[in-house]
Amino acid sequence: MLLPPFQLHEPTTVAEAVALRQLHPESDFLAGGTDLLPNYKWQLNTRPHVIGLHKVDELRAISPTKIGALATLKQMNMDGALWQEVPVVAQTAGLIASPLIRNSGTLGGNLMLENRCFFFNQSYVWRESIDFCLKAGGTACHVVPQETKCYATFSADLPGPLIALGATFELAGPSGTRRVPAVEFYKNDGIDRHAKRPDELLTFVHLPPTASQYRASYQKLRQRESWDFPELGIAVALKMKGETVEDLQIVANALECAPKLLRDIGSGLRGKKLTDAAIDEAAAAVETQVRPVKNTNLSPSYRKRMARVFTKRALLEARAGGPRRA
């Protein structure tokens, strides 16, 4: 499949990249290419300019408190310090797509992953046959036909644990850098997806120093152990004080247009013992609060039911100390 023609720019610093973005408002940033290039090959929202970030080496560094957006998923999955301090982040990076995709795919690319839908991730000819969709050139949604909102499913894995651990995203723009808490970054809309302004570049993920005090878990449902995007993902981060819960964050991921932090369920357990009964109750509550639609492979009602099972698994793993490197 041919890529559409575009002019490639190859900045070597973040400042250059941001300046190029300002110069060419009709452009996309390109990191690993495993999301953008397939979409370009399908003529999905292509742009005449592409700013390749492959020479911006300052964005590659990995530490348990600060990870560059160009760190590959494989590097994150292999990083000893990450496994030591925030194992759930290293583990989740290894659960994404296939080994080949992880060798190219980056942290930034996963955080900015385009939302997915049966009616969007198709070739131009296919989409033309249904008069396109809201997300790319059309006027109607084919998932929820009466709607004017896009229901494309949020399919990135890493935002789940990053939100649960209280990460912030650093954005570089023409007027300098700013930080946005991960929990505020995503919007529950398949088109207007996040708080990053078009002229900004996502550069770093900061994890609070306290993140290593949390026991966390990410449980992903997918049909095959490779390639497949999540049908759902549940991230939890748990901090205990003696026998009782000091803090608990639960994120339901890949069920709607954005990851969903279920604050009340987590805070409801504060100061309580995390008994099996309490875990069951929390898991049941998660099931009632998620609203999947039919645009992934497994049925929405099943995914909703599984939200309970996977919450329970995540809480049990977190209670037991979190994932360990194989």
Partner: peptide
Amino acid sequence: GENRLSCLTLAAQ
């Protein structure tokens, strides 16, 4: 030395 997908890599990269 790393196995990569040449279909999703720009030659420039």
